[in-house]
């Protein structure tokens, strides 16, 4: 669309956008405010936005097995890590596309490692266990889903026979099916085979549920890539698989990252399947629902702390990869 020139109208456009932004982030900010309040203050009829004593006690109760003094060093070390993230982000922001993705990956790896050594320095509660479950399931789903999705998506992009169409359309039909249609047979099967309550089963289930979307999205990215590169490689004697791994994958990174982000959101956010297939190995979304049904005010602040804790990893990931999400959708997915 043509650009508006009138300065007053332009100011109004910005104002409207700021309004939308406030609308979008208010629930998150409110949850954050609640999470650092004492239950009494969170339940006041006139909610206070500034005039209250902030407290970390909700996070302490959520994360630690017993209230202890070891919460402060953990919190401080995490704040240091956060500072490193911000610095790395600042340093890399202006540089090129892939560098920011790499720095993001490095920071996320550091965070995961730090997470794994946490029980060595503090006695963590069950919530920590749920977080680890979520992390394991998300990473495993991501790895399997993207690697087989890349193979499938690439083949579907390069082969134009009727079979390719049949696969794509049935994948789309699968995507439309309600989760419960799979959930109960999965539950039935898991009970019979002894895979109930295991990480591996839920991971495979999530891979399958996500596969239709992954192959559609990756296919549209691979379709954008020129044929000449791989043809040249194949004339030089490389096999299809070699040229795919050595030529195509390195230039398809932006699309793969975009698809990975969607997969990550799906796996991390999935509630129903985890609820149906897990009994003791809860993931974070299942864990938080157990805080939501109570009317008790003490629960509300802990639920707020849990909400913020669940959201934080997503915010970190998106901080690094937002550009890829938007650019990826602009370049490929939307044309599929």
């Amino acid at each position: 669309m043509g650009k508006i020139e009138n300065p007053i109208l332009r100011a109004l456009v910005h104002l409207a956008l700021i309004g939308c932004c406030i609308f979008c982030i208010t629930p998150l900010l409110w949850a954050f405010l609640n999470s650092i309040k004492f239950p009494v203050e969170a339940n006041e009829i006139v909610p206070s936005i500034v005039g209250f004593t902030p407290t970390m006690s909700n996070y302490e109760k959520l994360w630690l097995y017993m209230k202890g003094s070891d919460f402060v060093p953990i919190a401080i070390s995490y704040l240091i890590v956060m500072a490193i993230i911000v610095i790395l982000y600042r340093v890399n922001r202006k540089k090129e596309y892939l560098t920011s993705a790499k720095s993001g990956l490095i920071v996320i790896t550091i965070l995961v490692i730090l997470l794994l050594i946490l029980p060595q320095i503090a006695h963590m509660s069950k919530f920590y266990k749920y977080l680890i479950n979520s992390v394991i399931i998300t990473i495993a789903t991501l790895a399997i889903s993207i690697s087989i999705g890349c193979l499938g998506g690439y083949a579907l992009a390069r082969y134009s026979g009727i079979l390719s169409m049949v696969i794509l359309i049935s994948a789309l039909a699968f995507r439309s099916l309600p989760r419960m249609a799979f959930g109960l047979p999965f539950y039935f099967f898991a009970q019979k085979s002894g895979l109930y309550d295991t990480h591996i089963f839920i991971t495979i289930v999530l891979v399958a549920l996500n596969q239709p979307f992954t192959i559609w999205m990756l296919r549209s990215f691979f379709k954008e890539l020129p044929l000449e590169l791989e043809q040249a490689a194949m004339i030089d004697g490389a096999s299809r698989l070699q040229s795919f791994l050595k030529i195509i994958i390195p230039i398809a990174w932006p699309g793969i990252i975009t698809t990975s982000l969607f997969t990550l959101l799906l796996a991390y956010n999935e509630f129903l399947m985890a609820k149906l297939l897990m009994q003791s190995n809860w993931t974070l979304p299942v864990a938080i629902v157990s805080y939501t049904s109570g009317e008790d005010a003490a629960y509300r602040t802990i639920a707020a702390a849990a909400s913020v804790s669940i959201t934080l990893p997503l915010i970190i990931v998106i901080t690094f990869f937002q550009k890829h999400l938007v650019r990826g959708m602009a370049s490929g997915a939307v044309k599929g």
């Binding site: 939308c20 932004c21 982030i25 629930p27 409110w30 509630f271 979304p285 938080i288 639920a303």
Partner: peptide, 20 residues
């Protein structure tokens, strides 16, 4: 970045925040 927040939030968490 701000407009994407509702999209990335875990649905159960987003609903809980909204309800609060």
């Amino acid at each position: 970045a701000c407009l994407l927040v509702p999209f990335i939030l875990t649905p159960v968490v987003g609903t809980l925040m909204f309800r609060t």
